[in-house]
Simulated assay, not measured.
Amino acid sequence: MPEGHSVHRIARQFDRNFVGRVVTASSPQGRFAGGAAVLTGRTPTRVRAVGKQMFLEFDSDVWLRVHLGIYGAWDFAGEILLDPTIASANGRMGQTGQRGTDAVFDDAGENSLASIGAPRRARGAVRMSEQTRGLDEDLEEWPPAVVGQVRLRLLTETMCADLRGPTACQLQTPDEMLATVASLGPDPLVDDPAAGEERFLAAARRKPTAIGQLLMDQKVVSGIGNVYRAEMLFRARLNPHTPGREVPEDVLRSLWRDWVVLLPIGVDTGQMMTMDGLDAESYRRAMASRDDRHWVYRRAGLPCRVCGTAIVLEEMAARKLYWCPRCQA
Rank of each mutant, 00 (worst) to 15 (best):
H5G: 06
H8C: 02
R9V: 05
V19Q: 12
R21D: 05
V22Y: 02
V23Q: 03
T24Q: 09
S26D: 12
Q29Y: 11
F32R: 11
G34I: 01
G35L: 05
V38I: 15
L39G: 07
G41E: 05
R42Q: 10
T43N: 06
T43A: 02
T43E: 10
T45M: 09
R48E: 15
R48S: 08
K52L: 07
Q53S: 15
L56W: 10
E57Q: 15
F58V: 04
D59T: 03
V62A: 11
W63A: 10
R65N: 14
R65W: 14
H67A: 15
I70R: 13
Y71E: 11
A73G: 01
W74Y: 09
G78A: 07
G78P: 05
L81S: 12
L82Y: 05
S88R: 13
A89G: 14
N90P: 13
G91E: 04
G91H: 05
Q95D: 09
T96H: 09
Q98L: 12
G100I: 03
G100V: 02
T101F: 06
T101D: 10
A103K: 06
D106H: 02
D106K: 01
L113I: 03
L113A: 14
G117E: 13
A118Q: 12
P119V: 11
R120W: 01
R120E: 12
R121Y: 11
R121M: 08
R123M: 06
R127K: 07
R127D: 01
M128K: 06
L135K: 04
D136L: 00
L139N: 03
L139M: 12
V146L: 02
V146A: 06
V147A: 10
V147W: 00
G148N: 09
Q149E: 14
L152V: 06
L155D: 02
A161W: 01
D162Y: 00
L163A: 04
R164Y: 11
A168I: 14
P174E: 03
D175A: 13
M177L: 13
L178A: 14
P186W: 03
D192F: 00
E197S: 11
A202M: 00
A203Y: 01
Q213S: 10
M216L: 15
S222A: 15
G223N: 13
Y228W: 15
F234P: 09
P240I: 09
T242H: 04
P243F: 03
V247H: 07
V247A: 09
V251P: 01
W256P: 06
D258N: 03
W259K: 00
W259C: 00
L262V: 10
L263D: 00
L263A: 05
P264A: 04
V267I: 04
G270F: 00
M273S: 12
T274K: 04
L278E: 07
L278G: 02
A280Q: 14
E281L: 08
E281M: 05
Y283I: 00
R284I: 00
R285L: 12
R285N: 08
A286P: 04
A286L: 00
A288R: 11
R290M: 03
D291T: 03
D291M: 00
H294P: 03
Y297M: 04
L302Q: 14
P303H: 05
V306Q: 11
V306M: 01
C307P: 07
C307A: 06
T309S: 14
L313D: 10
A318Q: 13
R319G: 09
L321M: 15
Y322K: 10
W323F: 15
W323C: 09
